[in-house]
């Protein structure tokens, strides 16, 4: 992305972001092991297990354990925090629906 296209932003929004960043909780390694290892994860919002509490389903032998895997082989190396053994779920399909605020259109 060019510098030109990046310079079109709103100054007020920039100020808000800067303020928000400063006031944010400091020190937590967000994005790195945010989801703790282990199969049984209490959900943040509700009650229950966030891994298994989906409307969508797993197919075949895939397991959704939610574990955090480091160096699982998929790309190797510095993957601490990405739950690489999560399988992609199947959710059914009837086309675009209202709640899809953002999804592929190509």
């Amino acid at each position: 992305m060019s510098a030109e296209t990046r310079s079109m932003g709103n100054g007020a929004e920039k100020a808000v972001r800067r303020t928000a960043m400063v006031s944010a909780v400091v020190g937590a390694a967000a994005g790195v092991a945010l989801i703790p290892a282990g199969a049984a994860q209490a959900s943040v919002v509700g009650i229950g297990n966030a891994v298994f509490g989906n409307t969508c389903v797993l197919q075949g032998d895939a397991q959704a354990t939610g574990s955090t895997v480091s160096g699982s082989g998929a790309g190797g190396g510095n993957n601490v925090g990405l739950p690489l053994n999560l399988s992609r779920q199947q959710c059914g399909n009837s086309g675009i629906v209202c709640t899809a605020l953002f999804r592929a259109s190509v």
Binding site: V16, R17, A20, M21, S23, A24, V25, A28, A30, G31, L34, I35, Q41, S43, V44, V45, G46, A50, V51, G53, N54, T55, C56, A64, G66, L82, P83, L86, S87, R88, Q89, Q90, C91
Partner: peptide, 24 residues
């Protein structure tokens, strides 16, 4: 990663934590 794997509860949980640290 969580969203594209369609684990929407995990995604929502993650977003709660994300916005707590990076509001807006």
């Amino acid at each position: 990663f969580l969203h594209t794997h369609r684990h929407y509860r995990l995604t929502a949980d993650h977003l709660v934590r994300h916005f707590a640290q990076w509001p807006t």
